[in-house]
Amino acid sequence: MSAAAPDYAQEIQRSAREILARTASTEGLLERLRAEDVSRGAWDAAAQAGWFRLLSGEAAGGLGAGPAELAALFREIGRHLAAGPWVDTVVAAGLLRDHADLGPDTALIGYLPEPGAVVEFAAVADVLVVRGPDSIGLARGALAMPLKSFDLAGRPAQVDLTGATVEAVVEGAEAERVAVAIARLARVARSGELAGLAAAALDMSVRYAGERVQFDRPIGAFQAVQHRIAEMAVTRTAVDSALAAIVTLAASEGTDAEQAALYEYAAGEARTVVLSALQVHGGIGFSAEHPLHAYIKRVLRLQAVAGEGEPLLDLGGRLLAG
């Protein structure tokens, strides 16, 4: 699906890192997350940089990029813990812009893949896209009830479509094709976010272990701490490599079951990394004044989002059935 050059993903990564460092700095992260639902500076810069048309075809003014570029972008979004309906706007809306006018690039988009699903930022979304039995459409008059959440960078909501009208924009087999692409690419995006969160947690831990002095030396000089952080680097690499495998599956004929299994695996590994980061930080890491808990809670939510069924178990069952 991507005709992009192999180094295009690297270019996206560089540009995303530069834009997010400026607009969603991790200095003052907690203040930023408390002050606004959506990291507005980053959001507007993203619109200007064309991120919300990353996946759109050229006819819709898009960049026609593929899963590798998407993964690179979301790795940076995770690393900077930028808040907003990134996945739905970049992936669902990005693909639908080929079919429908979804308004300005800065629009906040929510995507409801099935009735009853939790949609992030649905309460503040400008447009709600709904997957129906035989179509994908834009809902008007839907009710979004915010859910309380530990996640500082997400604003989950329960969507009630009673009394809403849905105007179909894609129908039939094409709707099915788009819905499948959205599901696959959303998994790529979330895996990228997990990889970025794990990388950030490792970096924070290396920095902290070099600064925090106990027993007259930086704690990072103690072998017990060094070995824990070394294993974090190994597990972080496992998350990155699982991400690469998920990208490969999205770009090829890999089955949904395989991709879902790899996502569950990646989320579990990312969780191991952020929890190790907590151990390295000790008491300060457990304090709400330190930003680490925002990374931990985000990973836990991303892992829960994957919790439809038990993908690793299901895949194992398939392999055993032959």
Partner: peptide, 26 residues
């Protein structure tokens, strides 16, 4: 027994191998 424990372990080993394959490609 073809139970949940076995299936989960088989699925996890498969995922680890795909992860490692991607690492080796890099």
């Amino acid at each position: 027994a073809d139970d949940a424990r076995l299936r989960e372990r088989v699925g996890r080993a498969w995922a680890q191998l795909r992860m490692l394959e991607a690492y080796a490609a890099g």
